[in-house]
Design a binder for these strands. Structure first.
Length: 517
DNA sequence: TTCCGACAGTGGGGTCGCAAT
DNA sequence: ATTGCGACCCCACTATCGGAA
């Protein structure tokens, strides 16, 4: 298959905003692709290289040679070049890499060059990722979209499904079953602003602790245990204690869903950063495990006795979980079935207790919904407390993509006693298009410097920021930074001298930071 | 006709581990 | 020894399309 139609379709997909048009464009492309092209075409369309990083940056892409007149490049030729580049990546062969890239670009037409540069630099943004590709595959193959989506969730990979579907036809979808040992995309939760709102949306529900750790999917098939992350990476080797626990459970073919956290001597959860550091350590797992032992806490079961439980209602899956996992290793929960007011009170009390115990919040789950693998299902709603601060905008960065030409990413500062400001972090979240436009205008009036990337401003504009808590930071002067900061609104009624101070911020989380820092 | 679920996009901070300096 | 960078962890929020109500 030639690269030209791929590059052309990619541009067309990017230029239309209609999902239906994107789908039919991709479907047309899939129709002309041979089965051997699929492993390359699918990742390219999502802007990914199958080879991962190939050690090529902006430097090697600069000053491309004049484009070719005729389209002769095949996707396989491109793929082979990337494989060669990946093989010499990180071996100091910068000249050789640049030569290979320039040779590739020289063989490409204008449209192909633009696609390749986007692909290599990770800038392919055409508004079509896996979900659109799934619809297109369904259209091409005559399969139902829901069946394709289901197969992708169970296979944990669009590519595998695409290859077999296009080669063998829709019937092959029946062969994608939940298999112990092969990871499934996990179900995710939506957000709710309060317990009352969540219960109002769900009715009868379970209220569970939300633990701030690393999501794990634990598969045991007889003596073999495999542990996967949310993105289905295999981290079995890094969690020996979890493997040992899985081998002691009273079942020998199961799939569990849970979270690993770390507890201190008093049984309180240790900060996320420590857990991430532990789970991220691959070099000396033994000593890392001795320093920060991990505790798995399970909240769902996807298979037991080798049998697929995904379609069972939440309540029945929990029954199965209790048979498999003893109490201390199950997430704490209550079931709310009584009239809304009583239930609401019990749920509120459970949330308060959970927070007092040092956890992140609660997840409220409808009792009757199946496990929606790979979806952000409406059956699970998370509720976390939100803190807010009034901070001062110190600078803003020029946005990318659809925010090009707008000042987007805000640098946030808290007041110091001497009148200066300590930067606490950045945010680009929560801004509507209108706010982006307004702040671009306003910040330009306050600008004192623009280096083309960041616009520094007089610290006068006050903005209300929501955030989830503080975490330690070696980057910012106060030694802390905001976790998940987002803009709520501008406070034009406030002057910078009325903004929150560093002391206020630290005091609000004093115990946390002191104990954890 | 309006409403709402699902998606894609736009990036945040931290950590590890490798490669370059 | 440092520094830079990619790959993963955690993640919030808005705009948009298109099917559901």
């Amino acid at each position: 298959m030639l690269l030209a139609p791929l590059a052309h379709v990619s541009r067309e997909v990017a230029e239309t905003s209609a999902r239906s048009r994107k789908i039919s464009l991709l479907a047309g492309l899939f129709r002309t692709a041979g089965p051997e092209d699929v492993p390359i075409v699918i990742p390219y369309l999502a802007g990914r290289l199958p080879q991962g990083r190939i050690g090529v940056g902006w430097n090697a892409l600069k000053d491309p040679p004049p484009p070719a007149d005729r389209a002769t490049l095949t996707v396989h030729r491109v793929d082979a070049t990337f494989t060669t580049l990946a093989a010499v990546a990180g071996r100091g062969a910068q000249g050789e890499r640049r030569r290979l890239v320039q040779e590739l670009l020289g063989a490409a037409t204008d449209e192909e060059q633009r696609f390749l540069v986007g692909l290599i630099s990770g800038e392919v943004r055409q508004g079509a990722l896996d979900a659109v590709a799934v619809e297109a595959l369904a259209e091409t193959s005559g399969a139902r979209a829901a069946a394709v989506r289901r197969a992708v969730m169970l296979a944990g990979s669009l590519q595998q499904v695409a290859e077999r579907l296009l080669a063998e036809g829709p019937r092959v979808l029946e062969e994608f079953l939940l298999t112990v040992g092969r990871p499934v995309l996990p179900m995710l939760a939506q957000s709710a602003t309060s317990v009352a709102e969540a219960i109002g949306r769900l009715g009868e529900c379970a209220v569970e602790e939300k633990l701030d750790g690393i999501r794990v999917q634990v598969h045991r098939d007889g003596p073999t245990v495999r542990i996967f992350t949310r993105t289905l990476d295999d981290i079995t080797d890094r969690l020996p204690e979890v493997t040992a626990i899985a081998l002691e459970l009273p079942g020998d073919r199961f799939v569990l869903d849970g979270e690993v956290i770390a507890l201190d001597a008093e049984g309180r959860p240790r900060p996320f950063q420590e857990i991430a550091s532990r789970v991220g350590s691959r070099m000396d797992v033994r000593s890392a495990a001795a320093a920060v032992p991990l505790s798995p806490v399970f909240f769902d079961v996807l298979a037991a006795g080798g049998e697929d439980l995904l379609e069972l209602p939440c309540a029945e899956r929990h029954e199965a979980l209790t048979l498999l996992v003893p109490e201390p290793m199950r997430v704490r929960r209550i079931v709310v079935t009584s009239a809304a007011r009583e239930g609401g009170r019990a749920a509120e009390a459970f949330l308060r207790d959970t927070l007092a115990r040092g956890h992140e919040g609660v997840v409220i789950k409808a009792l009757d919904t199946p496990y929606s693998a790979g979806r952000r299902g409406a059956g699970w709603l998370k509720v976390k407390p939100v803190h807010t601060l009034d901070l001062v905008v110190l600078a803003a960065e020029w946005g990318h993509g659809r925010r090009t030409g707008r000042l987007s990413n805000l640098h946030l500062g808290a007041r110091r006693q001497d009148g200066s400001f300590a930067m606490l972090g950045k945010t680009f979240k929560g801004l509507t298009d209108q706010m982006l436009e307004w702040q671009t205008e306003r910040l330009r009036e306050l600008a004192v410097r623009d280096d083309g990337f960041t616009v520094t401003v007089r610290p006068e504009l006050v903005v209300e920021i929501a955030y989830d808590g503080l975490q330690r930071s070696s980057r910012y002067p106060a030694g802390v930074t905001l976790r998940f900061a987002r803009v709520v609104r501008y406070r034009e009624d406030k002057s910078a001298t009325e903004a929150d101070t560093v002391e206020t911020v630290l005091a609000a989380h004093g115990r946390d930071v002191a104990e954890r820092g």
